[in-house]
Amino acid sequence: MAEKITTNDIVKEENLVFRKTPLFIDKPLSYCPGCGHGVAHRLVLETIEEMGIQSETIGVAPVGCSVLAYEFMDIDMQQAAHGRAPALATAIKRLHPEKFVFTYQGDGDLAAIGTAETIHACNRGENITIIFINNGIYGMTGGQMAPTTLPGMKSSTSPYGRDIKTMGNPLKITELVAQLPGTYYVTRQAVHTPGAVRKAKKAIRMAFENQKLNKGVSFVEIVSNCNSGWKMEPVQANEWMVENMFPFFPLGDIKVPAEQK
């Protein structure tokens, strides 16, 4: 070895292997440290960048932590009333069949208040992409019980743990929509490790590519953390998620089109 390679030698444009996509608007994200939303945002935006569809994409933001998603995504976006994103997306896609239309929703939005809109958009087979972030809690409003809160899991409205006898069962809405003939591709992913992120990226890419086929809803659930709501350190929250969330919400494809298997 002739001379010692310094950081300055490596940090050059020609050696660049990863940078933040320019579609990610350059401002501080409003999410808590360690929150999976940021990664999920990035994967959606990288997909749009790589497919070259910025001018053809219309996104719908939910109510919840990601209500401000449109502040960070450099694409045309609409903000929906709580749970109604699939209804907005239905109309946008019907009126603009040539556009790529997606919703980005949390568990409270998609699986509680918006259950009807979710089920019926999926059942009609709307040619849209649904990105569903499931962290088992209402993060934005301060950690209340969500439709996906695990049995026994503590939240501010289940302070002694979710009692399924009185509070009902967590809803596996992803398995539910997979049963509907209108869904084309249904998968559950995570973004807590490099490997999981790479898989989630592939799933999101497929979910967007599928819109070219006009075969129905592509539905990507991302099981994510809410370290503030769960009252844990970010790294600890990811570990807790692996131990507790994944057994109940197992990762992997739930419905894959025959021709893509």
Binding site: R19, F24, P28, L29, H37, G38, V39, R42
Partner: peptide, 9 residues
């Protein structure tokens, strides 16, 4: 890959 705020190049 895992950075939630995309601060790493």
């Amino acid at each position: 890959m895992v950075c939630p705020d995309a601060v790493i190049t």
